Simulated assay, not measured.
Amino acid sequence: MKKKSTAKKVLLTILGVLLALVIVLVGTVYAVWHDEITTLLSFQQVTQRDESHKDGSVYVLNVSGGYHFDEFLAQGGASNDTELISFITNSITKGIIPMSIKTSEIACSAFTADTADGDRVFGRNYDFHETNTVIVYTNPGNGRHASYSTVDLQFLGLDSTKDVTTFGQKILTLAAPFAPLDGVNDAGVACGIFMSYQGGEKVAATNQQTDKPDLTSTTMLRMILDYADSVEEAVELVEKYDLHDSAKTSFHYMIADSTGKSAILEWVSDSSDDDADGANRHLNVIWNDADPLSGATDWQMITNFIITPDYYTADANKPGLDRYELLRDRLAELNGVVADEEAAMGLLDAVSRRDWGNPGDSNSLTIHSAVYNLTDKTVLWVGNEHYGEEGYTFRFSLNK
């Protein structure tokens, strides 16, 4: 009996030690990754894939914590995708799980307008091929703004033709705050990124080489959402950095705020003929009250060609001119005033891509349409051109 009692005590001691080790291990994992764990638990699918309509799935993600963006800026940002991926991997997964960030050639359209009630809105279409998207909410605190943004999940290294189901796939979504394509913050500042097809036959990425710190395409947009209180402040922030466009592509931006101000930000050389070297580009800001193409001072629009005067020698060289002209003409007819957010969404429907007639164009689908109310700080979001359809239309508010 005595031997059995002793063996039992030894076994209980071993089990106790193992339990204590498990508790310590779980506690350590939670202490190191509690924000990341909370974020992953929020990941949720809200619409299903539909191959017949070429719809990818749509998800939502509520990001916990500050996602290390302060540290990213403090260490000088990143001058290329490799540096960005290295920072994300080391900061978020502590180097254990490799992460991914990339972008590609995308089409898009956007505009600003007023509603009949006097609210300022920013409408944006994201055009591409079939892919999955995630609507991302961030609220990092410490003087930074809360925001909603949209991320294309294939740019995080996820297969655009399959749903996100495994834990390993979901971990990659932790990089989502570093890859927004458009969004709005709780100061009423909205921003979108748009392909600009610069460099001639072979698109050349902007790749400034001064002594300023560095940002890639989507991290510049994240900085605007997190820190800008107005369009003017957004421009001031951008001017402090060199831009390095991702994935050998070129982009321009449109930013707007609740006061009615907006601006298009472009990095250009003197003309399209000498714009093949992205290192030679400089920032040009086209404010809404001095936009040479919009035909107005109170509203503005953008697609995929450079707005800067005298950049092109012919209209035939302007990608997306047809969508730009439709938006310009419709807004002129309305004197820049739409009835409400749904009417603004109707304008986005008018330039959506499934029915546009673009054979051979890889960006033949509108993946999402968003109307950001900069006055009320709300979002009206529609996936895959299902305008007015319940189950595909979502509303969010930053008035929390």
Rank of each mutant, 00 (worst) to 15 (best):
E201F: 09
T89I: 11
N185F: 03
Y67K: 04
T249K: 15
T249S: 13
T82G: 01
L334C: 04
T6M: 03
A190L: 08
F394G: 08
S230C: 10
S258H: 10
S64C: 00
G123K: 07
D114N: 15
Y241K: 07
I171W: 01
L84D: 04
T82E: 14
A247F: 03
A205G: 09
D214L: 00
L283W: 10
D226K: 03
W287K: 13
N399Q: 15
L334S: 08
G183Y: 06
C108W: 02
C108H: 08
A296H: 01
N90W: 01
D315I: 08
Y59Q: 08
N80W: 01
R49T: 10
A332P: 02
S246F: 02
S109T: 14
R323K: 15
A31Q: 12
E233C: 07
D114H: 11
T131N: 11
K261V: 04
G383C: 05
D340H: 10
N207F: 06
L237F: 04
K240Y: 00
G388T: 03
T366Y: 09
N373V: 06
S147N: 11
P180Q: 06
H145A: 04
L156C: 07
W356E: 12
K261P: 05
L293D: 07
A256P: 01
A296E: 05
K2R: 10
T138K: 08
R354E: 06
A74Q: 13
A263G: 02
V24H: 09
D298A: 15
Q208P: 00
R281T: 03
N185E: 03
A279C: 11
I106S: 11
K318Y: 02
G56H: 08
P98D: 01
